[in-house]
Nucleic acid binder design. Structure first.
Lengths: 195, 195
DNA sequence: GTCTATACATCGATAGAC
DNA sequence: GTCTATCGATGTATAGAC
C-alpha cells in the first residue's frame, strides 16, 4: 500500500470510525488522526460521507481478498467432519483476528446499515455471498454429508458463526452466554453432517 | 401504560433513537418528538445517556415478557420436526413484527454496543439467554432429537434465525442473498433433528 | 496542494421567569 | 413543573494566504 496522503487519511479514518461510529466521529478528529488539516482532507474526499464510503469499500476489498485466499487454501477432500471443522475454525479465526478489528467492523456496518443501505448491500454481496457460495459448493461436493438444502445450510452456518462473534465479543456477553469455541464448532459440524 | 409525561418522552425517544441512532439524535429532536421543551425533558431524565438507557431497558422488559409468553404458548409434545418448525416460525414472526421495530432495535443495540457495553449485556442476559435456555430445554426433553450438545445447538439456532433477519432486513440484502423463509426454517429443523 | 482562520449551524445542558 | 432564551463547545465545510 502506497503511503499517499489519501491512504494516510483512510487509515486514520478507519481507526476513528471503528472506534466511534459515523456520527460519533468529527471531521476534526479525522484530520487530526491523519495528521493533516481539514482543507487537505476535503481536498481528497468530497465530504465526510464520501470518506466513510471509501473506508468501508477499502475494508470490503480486503475482506473479499481474505475470503478468496481462505477458499483457495481450503481442503476439499478427506473425512467430512474433519474437513468442516477445519473450515469453520479457519472462518472463526479470521473473524477474531484482532489486528483486523473485524468485530468493530461488524458493529459499525450493522449500526450504520440504516444510514448507508447501499454499503451494507456491498458487504453482503462481496463478503457474505462468496462465503455462502463456497460453503454450499463444499457441501454439495460431499455426498456423505446428507444435506438436503446446501444453500440454506451454508447461510445458517455462517449465521451461527457470526452469532458466536456477536455474543462473545460484540455484545460483551462471554460471561453471560459463555460459548466455548471448540464445543460450538463441533456442534455445528455435527449439525451440518447429520448424525 | 400510563400516559405520564415520562412515558410520552420515552415513546418519542424510542422512535427517534431507532431511526437515527444515539449520536444521530439530538436532545432538541427528542424534546420535539415528545412535544415538550428541553428543560422538561431534563427534569425527567438526568441527561441524554440516561434517557437512552431508559429507552433500551423498557424495550428489554417488553421483549423479555414477549419471550416469556412465547415460552408458555410453546407446544412441548408431538413430532419433533413439527414442534421445532412451529417454534422457529414463531420466533421469526416475533422478530419480524414490524410494529415492534425489532430489526431497528437490533441495529441500534449492536451499533451502540461499543458505547454502552452494559446495556448490550442486559440484552444478552434478558433476551438471548432465556431464549437459548428454553430452546435447550426443549431439545433435552425430546430424546428422538439426537442432540449431543443442546446448549450449543440452541445458541447456534438462535444465531441462524437472527442472521436471517440480519441479511434480509437489516443489511437490506434480500435480493443479494435471497433466503426463503420456509426453506430456511425447514433446513434448520432438519439440521437440529438430524437425518 | 496545504495551511490558518473562520463562517455558520447545531450540539448538550442550564438560568431564570412564570 | 414548564417554559423562553441562551450558554460555551463543537459540528461540517470553506475562504484566502502561501
Amino acid at each position: 500500500m502506497l503511503e499517499t496522503k489519501a491512504n494516510v487519511i483512510l487509515a486514520g479514518a478507519l481507526r476513528e470510525f471503528l472506534e466511534n461510529g459515523y456520527k460519533g466521529t468529527s471531521v476534526d478528529r479525522l484530520a487530526k488522526a491523519a495528521g493533516v488539516s481539514k482543507p487537505t482532507l476535503y481536498n481528497h474526499f468530497k465530504d465526510k460521507e464520501a470518506l466513510f464510503a471509501a473506508v468501508i469499500r477499502q475494508q470490503v476489498r480486503i475482506f473479499y481478498q481474505d475470503v478468496a485466499v481462505l477458499a483457495i487454501d481450503m481442503p476439499v477432500s478427506g473425512d467430512p467432519k474433519v474437513l468442516l471443522h477445519s473450515i469453520f475454525s479457519a472462518m472463526l479465526t479470521r473473524m477474531l483476528n484482532n489486528t483486523d478489528k473485524h468485530q468493530d467492523f461488524i458493529r459499525l456496518m450493522i449500526g450504520e446499515s440504516g444510514r448507508f443501505p447501499h454499503l451494507a448491500q456491498e458487504v453482503a454481496k462481496s463478503i457474505h455471498k462468496p462465503v455462502i457460495d463456497k460453503l454450499s459448493q463444499i457441501l454439495k461436493l460431499h455426498p456423505e454429508i446428507d444435506c438436503l438444502d446446501p444453500d440454506m445450510t451454508a447461510a445458517s452456518i455462517l449465521g451461527s458463526l457470526i452469532y458466536f462473534v456477536m455474543t462473545q465479543y460484540i455484545l460483551h456477553a462471554s460471561e453471560i452466554l459463555p460459548l466455548e469455541r471448540d464445543r460450538y464448532i463441533n456442534q455445528l459440524v455435527e449439525m451440518a453432517v447429520g448424525y
